[in-house]
Design a protein around this nucleic acid. Structure first.
Lengths: 144, 144
DNA sequence: CGGTATCCACTTGGATACTG
DNA sequence: CAGTATCCAAGTGGATACCG
């Protein structure tokens, strides 16, 4: 067999991705992986998460945690003290997610430099050949 | 493999995620995984990809392929025939990405049912307790 | 065939203010 | 402490039209 290509029937790919895509959209959002990784260290209260992440807004932390709870990846436990304490923890399902996420993290760590170099080469090449045309695609946000 | 928590120092988590998050954002977008998986079967021309994916717009396919090329995950080869033919193929780096992506796919396939059940339970519980309040968070798009 | 360019709807996410 | 509510800026992605 040749170096490399897997032979997946084309018809199955789209069907597969209709199940994978929602999962990736969820964990690919701006905060889910960070929060899940934090909770992977152990249960944590709302403001403890907020402090340790630092840059997250209260709104986004609430939204992220609600999604995790809805998907069965985390639990929310209210203890009726004064002031109230709310503790979040990963479920078994949530902890199992740490495994493939770690695989992605390892891949990212291993190839981050290669990707950055490829990007610089690409941007440099386009600056030579086509002016700033493709740079504009990369940036894409300058004009409104 | 205890059913427990990994002990990652909190300080490292945020630093790690600053490298992982961009990668996840890229492959977590609407089309990248689908296109990469397609190209995992072997090199393909632009409109062949377009046809097999079916639902993707020309614009998004172009944008997705440009990003893959920029990141060094795919190559773009123009053959100066008439009409012109442009073939896309994964690089070695791109094929290596198929490994962790497969891990995510396997996880998604294994737990898709559990997630859907958790969602229905969550939504049902909230309908009982708090009316339609949290349903509104899940839907979130009705009002403008 | 393989793109670009333009316009527009929807979604995401930050800032701020207020509540039990 | 742990949220909720509201407003707003930016990003994402679809539809359409046109180009070499």
């Amino acid at each position: 067999m040749k170096p490399g290509y897997s032979h997946v029937p084309a018809d199955h790919v789209a069907a597969e991705c209709s199940r994978v895509a929602p999962v990736l959209s969820r964990i690919g959002d701006k905060w889910t992986v960070l929060v899940v990784t934090m909770l992977g260290r152990g249960p944590m209260r709302f403001n403890a998460l907020r402090r340790e992440i630092g840059s997250i807004s209260q709104r986004m932390l609430t939204l992220t945690l609600r999604s995790l709870e809805r998907d069965g990846l985390a639990t929310r436990t209210v203890r009726p003290t004064v002031p109230p304490q709310v503790e979040y923890a990963l479920t078994e399902l949530g902890r199992s997610l740490l495994v493939p996420v770690s695989a992605i993290r390892d891949w990212a760590r291993a190839h981050a430099d290669a990707i950055e170099q490829a990007q610089r080469r690409f941007d440099g090449r386009c600056a030579d050949e086509a002016g700033t045309a493709v740079r504009a695609i990369a940036d894409q946000a300058s004009a409104s």
